[in-house]
Nucleic acid binder design. Sequence first.
DNA 1: TACAGTAGAGAACGTTCGTTCTCCACGCTA
DNA 2: TAGCGTGGAGAACGAACGTTCTCTACTGTA
Lengths: 181, 181
Amino acid sequence: MDPAEATERLLEAAETLFYAHGVQAVGMDAVRERSGVSLKRLYQCFPSKDDLVEAYLLRRDERWRASLRGFVRAHGDDPLAVFEWLYDWFREPDFRGCAFINSFGEFGEPTPRILAAIRKHKDEVRAYLRELVPDPPLADMLFSLVEGATVLAAIGGDPGEAATAREAAAVLIKANKRRRT
Amino acid sequence: MDPAEATERLLEAAETLFYAHGVQAVGMDAVRERSGVSLKRLYQCFPSKDDLVEAYLLRRDERWRASLRGFVRAHGDDPLAVFEWLYDWFREPDFRGCAFINSFGEFGEPTPRILAAIRKHKDEVRAYLRELVPDPPLADMLFSLVEGATVLAAIGGDPGEAATAREAAAVLIKANKRRRT
DNA sequence: TACAGTAGAGAACGTTCGTTCTCCACGCTA
DNA sequence: TAGCGTGGAGAACGAACGTTCTCTACTGTA
């Protein structure tokens, strides 16, 4: 099997399994089984589980943000579209919260590279929201709403948290507009 | 040693260690060592680690909410005081985010009792915020801000998230007041 | 002083898991 | 065809950990 294809299959398996069950609950053997890649090849592609976890997080970050960005752009870059995208996400049957927040909780003392990957994701999302709205402090407020809604939807199982956050965001945006004129 | 005192020392040790390093990273032996309670007694008080974790969460919930409630009451039950309390919390040197969110991330598939303890905490906090503000939807918005600020402060290490959330909360409360009159 | 019961210290057991090693089959070159 | 190197399957190793067991010391009682 091609090394590139092996890497792809490994990442695919890792993302599915790690997100669904948590990183610690999934052994390398489960990744091997789901990917169909031999253990030897697995350790050639990713010399340690830490490498695989880091790659999983970096890849998930890219895909997650690409999906959000695409959806919002299709809605005229309206910041409120972020919360509509969240609502769709929360209703997916295998929604289990934010992979990065979960990973942060999972590793009491994360490896520097894991921690960096987690922070990178949050930094990128914050930067994206600052692109979407004129005022950085406003963007940060929306970011807080996004994170809160995600956590509460995951724990409580209620996708309606997205609607609550959306209402709040609408009020904040309107108030900000009024203040800036 | 008294069974009651043993239980108290075990819970004290468990809370410190579990919160600081994560539940999975702390072995029963570490709890024994820190508490000074023998393993035999430990398993008499808590027949399994799951029992100890559940007790840890329930106890932390009580203490956390009591601290918040006391602070806010001392500030005239002003909802914005919640965010000042958060700011103090975020600046504590051993702040590591919300123990319940972390636990949720840690256990991909939590035991029913663990999941119930996590949800109970969030339900109680939501109920408390609904006591503080007149309008349940407004309370839920503030709740989302609280959770978001906590997550971002933990991951980014920036206590200033509390100030951002406080600003947002002030806007939401003022807008709500205007609408209700 | 003899004894029954309890408690503590720590060894031991069984499992899980990350990682490495062994062995064998297959394909390429002379 | 002989030999060599690569790759896969799965055994094996070593550590960590939840849980239980063993052995010893001590306390209170007749």
